[in-house]
Design a protein around this nucleic acid. Structure first.
Length: 574
RNA sequence: GGUCCUGUGGUGCAGUUUGGAGUGCACGCCGGCCUGUCAAGCCGGAGGUCGCGGGUUCAAAUCCCGUCAGGACCGCCA
């Protein structure tokens, strides 16, 4: 139907007769004898010059035939790749017509997202979505190539699997052949990829669709794509190299520049310096340890296990109203309070300054590297809480937009094996129960100093987004049984939950390790988007609805009956 | 489960603080004029359940309560 794409034509094509197909992008009509039409396809736009009356409206689909010619003197458009030429149209066929659109397709208008999603097929015509989907395709391709260069082979795993009780809430699918039984949709191919290792696959990867029924966020959808990988006979370092290669290739495919070696930071350092296990290292405002400074303080609010602060450069101008807002925000995050101090030429200006000795004030200023004009924010609490709240506050006050500051990948290593104790007194695994303890901490594990035990688990962070995580897996039965025992999972329970994996591990499981990272998140950051919905063709809203198809919908009674299901009436208030 | 923000012709906004006639801006749409535009220009026109419900008031887009939808975040996401 066409000989060329609109956006490909250049001065070299002058005097060629071409046939083009595309949408009417913009019209500039000068009466019956002259009309300029920008014709658009995925490659871009080209200017048509039409003599004679045609009723060509926005978004009509045309097939045109004409000659490529240079634009007359001084009318070339430098801003357009095809701006040197135009098409002298001899023949126009209207392939289809269009009603006026519900929203403009130009780049200047920020359209309501529900409207965009309801008419996603129109939104996809916009250059933003065209660009983002192309970035996505190139990232996918670069990651596949990078994994295959390293000897990984792609293996697909099933979507209908058995529900396992750990982790996130499952999406479930009722079984017709066995009413009352359900499949689960995979939260990740975790167990299958480990079985692949037992199966001698050696180096597995997959760009896998994963599903988790948890509340949605800017960086979370019900369904998302992961680069999922697992390898046998490898160490943690080997895995970090594999994955570093994949993300560097993806970044290079988009930016043209290959990132350098990804730095590593221990989990503990990340928590102490940034208050989070996914530090955004594009900016400073690090958490400063102040516990020692106030070790002997008379000020009751600072008589806490941990005192930490952050310094907001130039923040002394912050209004009292705003400071109250920030304080309220911290309370809503669970803080007991927030102490603020403005650094002025006359010393610290703060409601609590009078409770601090001169020595404390000067020690504080020194510890914070405070300069006149700064704002200091201090939280005193349990160590976990103080870190957490200041970490959130640091992001709230200092985080640059996604497009600023470049790409800062970071490996966070040496996670603890257990993140704490649940109400029953059982430790909570920080990663998953198949994570290998750190070889240097096996003694602590044997002693029962559980919270001191590190694991061979690691996260990849990019600009403060958790891209993904992985670990060296346990492949020895004895170690696995020990960990299950510590987790309070008895032999019987372990067999019923993970029996097929444990069975497999009786038959020569190789030592193995793996990783998975979110393709949507990586793509969003590389595309300069704050929200993964912008790099997903058909995403859901925060409430999990799809404005395009209306999903989720009720199903009819016959379908329910076939599946052996009955729907409860909506829970009513007491 | 919780906190905060948003909802006004087809689209994007202003108007809400301090109640007084559906008032305004830009784009789009429809019609007319126009032979070198490129966010074309000029003239004219149509288009409104101010998300929805209730309340206060002589009077509500505006104040109050509820509700729906959307968004950001906390919890949650091994």
């Amino acid at each position: 139907m066409r000989t060329d794409r609109c956006g490909d034509l250049r001065a070299d094509d002058v005097d060629r007769s071409v046939t083009l197909c595309g949408w009417v992008d913009r019209r500039r009509e000068h009466g019956e004898h002259l009309a300029f039409i920008d014709l658009r396809d995925r490659s871009g736009v080209v200017q048509l010059v039409i003599d004679g009356a045609h009723d060509l409206r926005s978004e009509y689909v045309l097939q045109v035939t004409g000659n490529v010619r240079l634009r007359p003197n001084d009318t070339a458009n430098q801003a357009l790749p095809t701006g040197a030429i135009e098409i002298d149209v001899a023949e126009v066929t209207i392939l289809s017509t269009s009603d006026p659109l519900p929203f403009p397709l130009d780049d200047r208008t920020e359209v309501d997202e529900v409207l965009r999603l309801r008419h996603r097929y129109l939104d996809l015509r916009r250059s933003r979505m065209q660009r983002n989907l192309e970035v996505r395709a190139r990232v996918n391709s670069a990651v596949r190539t990078a994994m295959e260069e390293q000897g990984f082979i792609e293996v697909e795993t099933p979507m209908l699997i058995a529900s396992t009780p750990e982790g996130a809430r499952d999406f479930v699918v009722p079984s017709r052949k066995e009413p009352g039984s359900f499949y689960a949709l995979p939260q990740s191919p975790q167990l299958f990829k480990q079985l692949c290792m037992v199966g001698g696959i050696d180096r597995y990867y997959q760009i896998a669709r994963c599903l988790r029924d948890e509340d949605l966020r800017a960086d979370r959808q019900f369904e998302f794509m992961q680069l999922d990988a697992e390898a046998s006979f490898v160490s943690q370092d080997d895995v970090l190299v594999f994955i570093s290669h994949a993300v560097a290739s993806a970044a290079e495919a988009i930016t043209g520049e290959r990132p350098g070696e990804i730095p590593r930071m221990s989990w503990l350092e990340a928590m102490e310096r940034f208050g989070t296990d996914k530090p955004d290292i594009r900016f400073g405002m690090e958490l400063v340890e102040l516990t020692e400074v106030f070790a002997g303080t008379e000020f009751r609010a600072f008589q806490a296990p941990c005192v930490k602060g952050i310094r907001v450069p130039g923040g002394a101008e912050t209004s009292r109203n705003r400071l109250d807002e920030i304080t309220d925000q911290c309370r809503s995050w669970g803080a007991k309070g927030l102490v603020w101090m403005k650094v002025t030429e006359d010393g610290l200006n703060s409601p609590v300054a009078k409770f601090l000795t001169d020595d404390e004030q000067s020690a504080l200023a020194a510890a914070m590297d405070a300069e006149v004009g700064d704002l200091i924010l201090i939280v005193a609490d349990e160590r976990r809480a103080a870190r957490h709240i200041l970490g959130l506050l640091r992001i709230e006050l200092g985080r640059p937009p996604v497009t600023e500051g470049g790409l800062h990948f970071l490996w966070v290593v040496d996670f603890p094996l257990f993140e704490g104790m649940d109400d029953a007194g059982n430790p909570i695994p920080a990663h998953h129960p198949f994570t290998m303890p750190h070889p240097d901490d096996m003694d602590a594990l044997d002693r029962g100093d559980l919270l001191d035990v590190r694991s061979q688990a690691y996260d990849l962070v990019l600009n403060g987004w958790e891209l993904g995580s992985g670990s060296v897996r346990i492949h020895q039965r004895e170690v696995q049984e020990q960990v299950f025992g510590i987790l309070g999972i008895g032999a019987e329970e372990a067999q019923s939950k993970f029996g097929f994996l444990l069975d497999a591990f009786r038959y020569g499981p190789p030592p193995h390790a793996g990783f998975a990272f979110g393709m949507d998140r990586l793509t969003a950051i590389l595309a300069g988007e704050e929200n993964i919905r912008e790099v997903i063709a058909y995403p859901k809203t925060q409430s999990g609805a799809d404005p395009l198809t209306g999903a989720p919908t009720a199903i009819d009674d016959r379908q329910l009956e076939e599946l052996g299901l009955r729907v409860l009436p909506p829970a009513s208030q007491a």
